[in-house]
Simulated assay, not measured.
Amino acid sequence: MASPTRFNLTEHSPTFWRVTFDNPPVNLVDGAFTDELNELFSRAEGEDVSVVVFDSADPEFYLAHYDLSAKDELDHVLAHPEEVHPYTALLTRITKLPFATISSIRGIARGAGSEFLLDTDMRFASREKAVIGQFEIGISAIAGGGPATRLPGLVGRGRTFEILYGGLDMDGARAESYGYVNRSFPDDELDGFVDELASRISSFVLQTIRDIKHFVNVATLRPDAEFKDQMDAFWAAVNRPAQQHVAERLFDAGLQQRGDVERDLPQWVTRFQYSPDSEQD
């Protein structure tokens, strides 16, 4: 595969790979991210990979969220409603990859970033430096990547509503207590634990890993068809005045740039909430 532009690949061994997100300024998810990961997964499926760890080169941002400036993408989605969005397809593919996947979370993982880690097999977080949440209600949109389907099995119905209705962040310790992540660790212990676990998994017979994943998926995965409707609802919201009102003001304030807006997004969205009178501002 060509050299990726959204992440770095480290092949620790033929069975243990690491994907390190590296897409300044804030590690946005976009079409290139999706394409490059699909290409990587196709290569990994043809080799003897047993485990892939996903982490970030930026200690402040794991995956900030989806690139909300993708106007051409919105136009395509609205013109082709029959298509499954590529990011939806990528997320459902992750759940079925024939090897173990681990998110090692340090920094902000909101929106599409949170949705990404929810589709990996295991999630481990820095207690102090992980920031996880679904902020989309604050921009008058549904979370499109399937957390309404993924979260109830992890955190329960009530906490799913709290996460999606509240649109607030949680740190690694709270995420652990809710079941959003497997475990959280003091920041200086996270890498050592994840590396030790991944190395252990990589030493086992690949077919056994594949068999375990198959039977856990049979017991836990929802039908793929559920996810298309959620992503369609997200992009429909992006085309409405309410979302555009908030997004325009957030971009003016510094959205998708390294700064206070991205660091404290759930609080910034409350400054620009939409009402019919807003169109006259």
Rank of each mutant, 00 (worst) to 15 (best):
E176Q: 15
F161A: 13
D252I: 00
D229I: 02
L206W: 07
S199H: 09
I142Y: 03
F251L: 12
N217K: 07
L164G: 10
A237I: 06
H245P: 02
G179L: 08
V238N: 06
F185E: 06
F204Q: 13
G153T: 01
Q207F: 10
L250E: 06
L151M: 14
T160M: 04
R249G: 08
R249T: 04
D191T: 09
T208M: 08
R159H: 09
D229A: 15
L206T: 13
Y180T: 14
A225C: 04
Y180Q: 13
H245V: 02
R222E: 00
R222C: 05
A236R: 12
H245T: 07
A236E: 06
Y180D: 14
F251N: 05
V238I: 07
R150M: 02
L206H: 13
M170N: 05
V194Q: 13
V205C: 08
L190M: 12
S202K: 08
R157H: 00
V218L: 15
V205R: 14
H245M: 06
D169N: 10
I212F: 12
A225T: 08
G138A: 10
N239A: 15
S199N: 11
M231A: 02
K213G: 02
R222D: 04
G158S: 13
D187T: 11
G179W: 06
D187K: 05
D188Y: 09
S140E: 02
D211W: 03
F251D: 08
E248Y: 03
V216L: 15
A143P: 01
